[in-house]
Deep mutational scan, measured.
Amino acid sequence: TVKFKYKGEEKQVDISKIKKVWRVGKMISFTYDEGGGKTGRGAVSEKDAPKELLQ
């Protein structure tokens, strides 16, 4: 599970739902399947990112 803040809201998403991951400076950005055909997005700092996300 990845915990992150998006627009001031605390969120979390299961690693299995993450589609795409990329690095922006010291942040790790990602998109994930929100269900219902929607794609969500989020970002975590490199130090807070789970190891599975960095692979």
Rank of each mutant, 00 (worst) to 15 (best):
A49T: 03
K51Q: 13
R41F: 15
K7M: 13
E52R: 08
D48V: 09
G25P: 02
G42N: 02
I28P: 00
W22E: 03
G40K: 08
Q12E: 15
K47S: 10
K5V: 12
E52S: 11
L53S: 01
G25M: 03
I15W: 05
S45L: 14
K11I: 13
L53I: 06
G8V: 02
E52F: 13
W22P: 00
K26L: 10
D33W: 07
E10A: 10
E10T: 11
S16F: 09
K51Y: 14
F4E: 00
A49P: 02
I28C: 02
G36P: 08
L54V: 11
T1K: 12
E10N: 11
R23K: 11
S16E: 10
E9T: 12
T39C: 10
R41T: 09
V21S: 07
A43T: 15
S16Q: 10
K38E: 07
E9L: 10
G36L: 08
D33V: 07
E52D: 08
D33S: 06
R23M: 07
P50L: 04
V44S: 02
I18S: 00
D14Q: 12
V44N: 01
T39S: 07
S16T: 11
V2Q: 01
F30E: 00
T1L: 14
R23C: 05
E52K: 08
K26F: 11
K11S: 03
Y32D: 00
K19Y: 14
L54N: 03
T31K: 04
A49M: 05
R23N: 04
K5E: 06
G42H: 02
Q55L: 14
K38S: 09
E10C: 11
K19C: 12
E52W: 14
V44T: 04
V2F: 13
A49W: 09
K17T: 11
L53F: 05
G35S: 05
F4I: 04
V2K: 01
G42V: 03
I18H: 00
Q12L: 11
E46T: 12
S45R: 14
K47D: 13
E34K: 11
S29Q: 15
G40V: 06
E52Q: 11
E52A: 12
I18F: 03
G35W: 04
V21G: 02
K20R: 12
T39V: 14
P50E: 02
A49D: 02
V2E: 01
W22V: 04
D33K: 04
G37R: 04
Y32G: 00
R23Y: 08
K38A: 08
S16H: 09
S29V: 15
E9H: 10
R23Q: 07
E9R: 12
K20N: 09
K20F: 11
V2G: 01
D33Y: 07
V21T: 06
E9C: 08
K3W: 09
V44M: 10
G8K: 04
G8Q: 04
K19S: 06
K38T: 09
K11Y: 11
E34S: 09
G35N: 05
D33L: 06
K7E: 07
K51R: 12
Q55A: 14
I15L: 13
K11L: 09
I28A: 01
Y6Q: 08
D48L: 11
K17D: 10
K20V: 09
E52H: 10
K7A: 08
K5Y: 15
E52T: 08
E34W: 06
K7W: 08
L53D: 00
K26H: 13
Q12P: 02
V21D: 01
D33R: 04
F30M: 01
G37P: 03
G40E: 06
V24S: 14
T39N: 06
I18Q: 00
E9Y: 10
K26A: 13
V13N: 00
G35L: 06
K38H: 09
I18E: 00
E46W: 15
R41N: 07
K11G: 03
T39D: 05
D14E: 14
Q12V: 15
L53Q: 01
G8D: 06
K7G: 08
A43G: 06
L54F: 07
V21A: 10
G25L: 03
G25E: 03
R41Y: 15
K17P: 00
E46Q: 10
G25R: 05
L53H: 01
K11W: 05
T39W: 11
R23A: 05
L53N: 01
G35D: 09
F30P: 00
K19F: 14
T1C: 10
K47Q: 13
G37W: 04
Y32M: 02
T39G: 04
M27A: 05
A43N: 11
D14I: 06
I15F: 09
R23P: 03
K5N: 11
L53K: 01
Q12H: 10
A43E: 12
R41S: 07
V24W: 14
Q12R: 09
I15A: 04
S16Y: 09
G37Y: 04
T1R: 08
Y6P: 02
E34V: 10
Y32K: 00
T1S: 11
K20C: 14
K20M: 11
Q55H: 11
K20G: 06
K51C: 11
E52N: 07
Q55I: 14
K47P: 05
V2H: 01
Q12G: 04
T39E: 11
E46F: 15
V2A: 02
M27H: 06
Y32Q: 00
L54T: 09
V13T: 06
G42R: 01
R41W: 15
D14L: 15
L53V: 04
K5F: 15
K7R: 13
P50V: 04
K51P: 15
S29L: 15
S45T: 12
K26E: 12
D48T: 09
K17R: 12
K19L: 15
D14A: 13
M27S: 06
I28Y: 06
Y32P: 00
K3M: 08
K47T: 10
K7D: 07
S29G: 12
Y32L: 01
D48G: 07
K17H: 11
V24Y: 12
K3N: 09
R41P: 01
F30C: 00
K19H: 09
K51M: 14
I15Q: 03
I15N: 02
V24L: 08
W22S: 03
K7I: 03
R41G: 03
K38Q: 09
G37L: 04
K5P: 04
V24K: 10
D48M: 09
I15G: 02
A43D: 08
T1F: 15
Q55V: 13
E52V: 11
F4K: 00
K26N: 14
E9D: 08
G35T: 06
A43Y: 15
E10V: 14
F4V: 03
G40L: 08
Q55Y: 12
G25I: 02
A49E: 01
S16M: 11
S29P: 02
G40Q: 07
G8E: 04
T31I: 14
V13P: 00
T31F: 09
T1A: 10
K5C: 14
D33E: 09
G25Q: 03
T1Y: 15
T39H: 07
I15D: 01
K51L: 15
T31W: 09
V2I: 14
E52L: 11
V13H: 01
G8M: 04
K7P: 01
E34F: 08
K5D: 05
K47H: 10
Q12K: 08
D14C: 09
E10W: 15
E10R: 07
G35Y: 05
K51W: 15
D48S: 09
S45F: 14
T31E: 09
S29A: 15
I28M: 03
Q12M: 12
G36C: 10
V13W: 02
S16D: 10
A49G: 02
T31P: 00
T31A: 06
A43M: 15
T39R: 08
Q12C: 13
T39P: 05
G37S: 06
D33N: 05
K11R: 14
K19Q: 10
I15H: 03
K11C: 06
T1G: 05
D48P: 01
W22G: 02
T31Y: 10
